[in-house]
Amino acid sequence: MDSRGRGTHDIGGLAGAPIELSEHEAAFWEKRVDAILMLLVGEPRRLISVDELRRGIEQLGAGAYERLSYYERWIASITTLLLEKGVITVDELGRKIAEVEGRGA
């Protein structure tokens, strides 16, 4: 909650800047984030729900919420939820991130 008594995501009705009419086509990695979510949400897995994804995004905190791009928020929330649910562990994730970074992609 901020001084307005709202969560960071709760912006309906606030004043804002003119709308930037951009038509950004999602990048491959962003589509994959989307795909991962759809697979985890849908049948037969139902490992996480869309509401949980949104809760995870809302809990990023004001700084991260505003700094991260749309699908960056998604993958951050998906990761948190998978850790919470024990689908992956912090150790596994740490090792895998180091491995991916080590590929020098």
Binding site: I36, A76, L93, K96, V100, A105
Partner: peptide, 16 residues
């Protein structure tokens, strides 16, 4: 070059 979140996507996807 991968940003942190792109790396995270690869890592999470491969783990899953």
């Amino acid at each position: 070059p991968h940003s942190y979140h792109q790396t995270l996507e690869v890592a999470v996807r491969e783990l899953l």
